Computed example of a mutant assay.
Amino acid sequence: MNYYLFTIQYDGTDFCGWAKQTKQRTIQGEVETAISQVTRNAQFRVVGASKTDAGVHAVDQKAWVELEFSPNLPGFLNGLNSALPVGIKITKIEPIKPEFRVRNCQQKTYHYQINLDTPNVFENRYYLQPKFKFDQNKLNEALQLFVGTHDFFNFSGLKEFELAAINSIRIIDSIRLKEEQKN
């Protein structure tokens, strides 16, 4: 078997999250469909670094991929991107060692964007548009409750038996509420 790390970016608006689901369009499902179309009957496995919720976007999602063959990487990347739907792109494929585990990453960064201005039809997929005014100081105060070490098992989608291999305890170093003015 051959092992690769895929770097993927996507606009998750039209998808039901990362993890493959029956009768739902997901990022993992679309990546697996593209691999099936390009490889024709080859055996493979895809494991994402994280599961994301419906509508979530990613700039640098990682996925561990096991293939039964060794592809020409530039051609394989090109073929996969041609088979993927609009809104999903694999930006990089690199070989990795078999023991590499994508879920044992060192750090993740999340950005949540809230638009407090007038909605813009060209940007509204990328911002939460609150339907009411809220106190930014109180929001910042509430966000600080997440800083520190916490067990996220209940949010992980992991099964009990998976805890032996995957640690659900995470450290949140910081959360910042930053106001930016649009141009």
Rank of each mutant, 00 (worst) to 15 (best):
Q107G: 08
E32R: 03
I93P: 01
P71L: 04
P98L: 05
P71A: 04
W64V: 04
T33H: 13
G148M: 09
V102R: 03
K138T: 09
Q37D: 13
V65R: 01
Q113T: 09
A42N: 08
S36Y: 08
E30F: 06
N41M: 06
I35E: 00
K89G: 06
W64G: 04
F122I: 13
W64T: 03
C105N: 08
R40S: 12
V65H: 02
P74C: 07
P85I: 11
K97N: 13
E123T: 15
A49Q: 00
L84G: 01
V121Y: 11
T118Y: 14
R40Q: 14
K92W: 02
V31K: 00
H57P: 00
R125P: 05
Q43D: 13
Q106W: 11
E99M: 09
F122T: 14
N120I: 13
P71V: 05
I88N: 00
G29I: 02
E68W: 02
K23G: 09
F146I: 03
L77W: 01
G87L: 06
A54K: 13
R103P: 06
G87S: 09
V121K: 13
N124S: 12
N120M: 09
L143G: 04
F44R: 03
E32S: 00
K89F: 09
G148T: 07
N120Y: 12
F134N: 03
E68N: 15
D117T: 09
T118L: 15
A63N: 05
Q61I: 02
S36C: 09
Q43T: 11
A58K: 01
A49D: 00
Q28V: 04
I90E: 07
Y126N: 11
Q136P: 08
Y110R: 04
D117E: 15
C105E: 01
Q24P: 00
N124I: 12
F44D: 05
N78D: 14
V121P: 07
N72P: 01
E32H: 06
A142V: 10
T52D: 04
T39D: 00
Q107A: 14
K108F: 12
H57I: 06
R45T: 07
E99A: 13
A42M: 05
Y112S: 02
L80D: 05
V46A: 01
K51D: 11
F146R: 07
V147P: 03
